[in-house]
């Protein structure tokens, strides 16, 4: 059975990362927001920027990848060519 993708807040909680640790991983992947802005994203119900959401989701998913965990944080509106390659259900 396929589990429903996690939201960012649930993914962060399960990862055990602090906001600062997630921010470091987000920076490594090319994210450009400040730590304060990242906190705001995570504390609000909806992340206003799809790309930032996807960078954060990838940062969290790499934590689960390191731990061989099946959890997956969902992406938002991934580029169609990418979803065709991967078969993600949440692509446009």
């Amino acid at each position: 059975m396929t589990e429903s993708p996690l939201g960012l807040s649930d993914g962060l909680r399960l990862s055990g990362l602090t906001h600062e640790q997630l921010w470091h991983r987000y920076l490594i992947l090319g994210g450009g927001r400040t730590l304060g802005e990242l906190r705001e994203h995570l504390d609000s119900a909806a992340c206003p920027d799809e790309h930032d959401h996807n960078v954060l989701a990838q940062a969290l998913n790499e934590v689960f990848l390191e731990r061989d965990k099946a959890h997956r944080v969902g992406y938002r509106n991934l580029f169609r060519l990418a979803t065709e390659r991967q078969g993600l259900a949440d692509g446009r």
């Binding site: 992947l29 090319g30 799809e50 790309h51 996807n54 960078v55 990838q58 998913n61 790499e62 990848l65 997956r72 992406y75 991934l78 580029f79 060519l81 990418a82 979803t83 390659r85 991967q86 993600l88």
Partner: peptide, 21 residues
């Protein structure tokens, strides 16, 4: 494609191969 779309392609490859981006 745009930079964000290119990043999405890298995400897809990472998820598909279970490797870091």
């Amino acid at each position: 494609i745009t930079a964000d779309q290119a990043f999405d392609l890298l995400i897809a490859a990472s998820q598909q191969t279970h490797r870091k981006l």
